[in-house]
Every structure is written in C-alpha cells, then in structure tokens.
Amino acid sequence: MTKLTVRLDGDNMVVVTRRFAAKPKSVFRAHTEPELMQKWLLGPEGWWMPVCINEARPGGRIRCEWTDGKGGDFYLTGEYIAVEPFSRTVHVERMHMPDPTPDNHVETLFEADADGTLLTLRMTLPDAETRKAMLATGMEEGMEASYARMETMMANGELVA
C-alpha cells in the first residue's frame, strides 16, 4: 500500500511514487502548508526544518532551511509555476549547499486512489548530465555520512586502523 518507488525515466527525469491512506486534499495540504511541512519533510534522523516559506500560488516563493544543530545546514529555494488545489502543483527548486544546484522542475500529482491518494513526483532536470550530477551529489553526501560514521567508530576504538 505505502511502498515508495523511485525510478529513472527518459534521459533526464526521476519519478517517485507513494500511496497514502488519506484524501488528496490532506496530502496536498501537507505538501503546501509550512506548519505541516515542518512536521515531516526532514530527511535523516536528527535534522529539522527551522525555516519554511511556501507560497502555494503561481509565482509564489519557496524556501526551506534544514539544520542538524551541529553546523550542518543547507537550504532550498524555488518558485511555483502552477497550483491546482488539491490535485497538482508545478514548481522549480534548487538546493544550496551552499552553491546552487541546477534547477529541478517538479510536477507533483495528488490523485484519488481507492480510498487514499497516489502521490507522483515527476522531477525533470535540464539534461542527462545534470541528473547524473544530482544523483552523484546525493551519493557524495551519503558517503560523507558513511565515512563520518566510520570515523566515529575508529575514534571509539570499535574499528582498528
């Protein structure tokens, strides 16, 4: 029912789907109302979103800032292109780490599915190279986390170099 799927589509798209046991209106609100977004859009354990601006109307601004409280900080900015309550939004976004990544064009669909909602995120990157770079950037971040864990283990004497 709730299984997450992530797949590559075409040269430059990434498509994510997930089902929810809630009405499209609720899922839409959870994606567009800052006080709701701040409750779940957090990523790995230990991170939170102290700043969330989300003006869900065509031309409206998006700004989300995350922190782990230990000096790890990054933020995302974007603009809405289309907002069709409670079924579809289209926006562009970019991550700042701190240099901005190329624009990611995101269409989000909220479709009634049985008594729940099928959420589909269709992300379109400028080209195949950028998609590769986006996936690679994420991978680099993740490797950082892995190696940081390894370092901690070494410091604790759990892993002998």
Binding site: T2, L4, V6, V16, R18, F20, A21, A22, K23, S26, V27, R29, A30, L36, K39, W40, L41, L42, G43, P44, E45, G138, M139, G142, M143, A145, S146, Y147
Partner: peptide
Amino acid sequence: EIDQWLNWLREAMARNYDRLDQVLADLE
C-alpha cells in the same frame, strides 16, 4: 559503502513519508 548509502537515502525518504502518514492521520 555506496550500497549502504543508497539504502540510507531510501530509508531517509521512506522515513519522511512514514512521518507524513502520521501527519495525515492527525489532519484527517
């Protein structure tokens, strides 16, 4: 290491959506 990380990414996303399940339950 990278396999481990891909799992970590999937987990991080899945964790977000699991949290969202709870937010939605409260909202409804």
